[in-house]
């Protein structure tokens, strides 16, 4: 695997996470439990989609085959998406979306913080901008995990169940393969074992405050980030997302 190939896939993984999770969050539009939260969730969706745009544009440049960010978002088939499965799961109830968001934000913040040190100037610049946004995302989702965990009995039970259900999807975020090793060696990528250590710390602290129980680590879902083998849900996301560009391939929007 050349550095260029590794960098392409590495950038796609980060961009796809943001694109797909942004898509899921955008589904909250007009569905929020309060108008303020409707705004907050779609605002985070907006940040993530913006980050995805920058990342996919860079991935397209790295690939060097004349594709655009939109080509990568709207013309790629399922098996060429490399987001982690946790990002594509249906939005569930508010608590489910919040717990998913928290588990992801707690990963993404240290990830982007470490990526600011990348020797790759573009990734470093994108990470610098993203860190500012993701700090807010994490503050928002962590506060809600605490409120819901330590709120009413119903809210506690709901988010504990969401946490239990989502746990098996967290392992994939920290998997490292040849792509990661290659970019890490070049000083471009991030050591995910370090990200995991920070993630553990954040998760333990917030769950404790939320009076929630951290699930035992067991078997972890895998396959999407490494080789594009997803859950059944991604296909439906792409069916929506790619409908217009695929139905009218000659059209400009």
């Amino acid at each position: 695997m050349t550095t260029q190939e590794a960098l392409f896939k590495y950038t796609l993984r980060i961009g796809d996470n943001d694109l797909i999770l942004g898509h899921r969050l955008a589904e909250w539009c007009s569905y929020g439990p309060t108008l303020e939260e409707d705004l907050a969730l779609t605002n985070i969706a907006l940040d993530l989609t913006g980050e995805a745009q920058a990342l996919l544009q860079y991935a397209a440049e790295v690939e060097g085959k004349g594709r655009s960010a939109d080509d990568l978002a709207y013309k790629r088939p399922e098996r060429q998406f490399y987001n982690s499965i946790i990002t594509e799961l249906p939005k569930g109830d508010f608590g489910y979306s919040i717990v998913r968001q928290f588990l992801f934000d707690a990963y993404e913040l240290p990830f982007f913080q470490m990526l600011t040190k990348s020797k790759d100037e573009t990734l470093s610049a994108i990470a610098h901008k993203a860190v500012k946004e993701v700090k807010y995302h994490l503050r928002h989702s962590a506060n809600w995990v605490i409120r819901l965990g330590d709120g009413t009995e119903e809210s506690h039970n709901r988010v504990q169940k969401s946490l239990n259900d989502l746990w098996e999807y967290t392992g994939e975020l920290f998997e490292m393969d040849e792509v990661d090793e290659t970019v890490l060696k070049e000083g471009i990528g991030v050591d995910l074992t370090l990200v995991k250590a920070e993630w553990d710390e954040t998760v333990n602290k917030v769950l404790a405050e939320a009076t929630l129980t951290r699930p035992e680590d067991g078997w972890m879902q895998t396959g999407a980030k490494r080789e594009g083998i997803h859950s059944e849900y991604l296909g439906y996301i792409l069916t929506d997302m790619q409908y217009l560009p695929r139905a009218y391939p000659d059209a400009q929007w």
Binding site: S30, Y31, P33, E37, F94, L148, E154, S155
Partner: peptide
């Protein structure tokens, strides 16, 4: 429907 679905969230926030 959405207002009703969000009730438990608003109640939790108030309780917290």
């Amino acid at each position: 429907k959405v207002h009703e679905e969000g009730r438990w969230v608003r109640e939790a926030a108030a309780a917290y």
